[in-house]
Amino acid sequence: MKNATDKERQILAAEFVLGTLDKNERHAVKVQRKQDAKLNKAIIDWQNHFSELNQYVDERTPRPDLLDCILTKIDQQNANEKSPLSKSQTVNAMSQDQVIIDLQAMRAKLKRWQFAALSSSAVAACLLVFVVLPSSPEQTNAPFIATFQSDDSQPAFIMSLDIATRQLTVRPITAQGQVGKTYQLWIKSDDIGPSPRSLGLLGDATGQVQKQIDYASGTLRHATFGISLEPAGGSPTGLPTGPAIHGKLYPTSL
């Protein structure tokens, strides 16, 4: 198709837009359109014309939490993009203000999850990002404190994490126990897989819980944490299934 005629271009472009090309042909067209302005123009023209047919497509409603899932993935992408920067010499550029702003954005998002009916495991798969720990050479061994809030006033839990010793302490503040329910702590990190992993049960929020976390400090620094409300005995699926409470993170140097 190096010396494609206009006729060939039009047919190729239209078939590409219709979707009738096989995967190899589609790939070839995607490559070729970057080098052939006429082909690219023909594709755009056919897209605009054939798109009128979309009026025949009936609207359909996906599951209601999909936007939250998308926003979560956007957050994760942003966090991943920021992560290499924070490892570099520009670590100090991540000021406390930035941390708080980022977390407030997460908080706004997570607020929508709080009292949603979380009956499906698909929803549970979205309950990933609660608190992101910034990393900094100066902060490597400094404890971090995260507050998990169930509303905009008082925190439900406070968690402190000493990355050097991997000692984690979760203390209930306003969290209330519920009959037949238990709180469960989760960690999510690309280092340990795509799904959140349980850090254990927090019980019914009657007292402080301490845990020794068996993850490398490097993993912990970039991990995300969350607390969900689960049936007694913990999540039956191995993933968060209950309502999530969100948190704010403060370096202890504040």
């Binding site: 979309n54 497509v57 359909r60 936007l67 998308i70």
Partner: peptide, 18 residues
Amino acid sequence: AMLYHSTHRKLFGIVHRI
């Protein structure tokens, strides 16, 4: 989010039909 709310049913219809 507004963009999503105003378009997702249509786009989902397109995807699901295929």
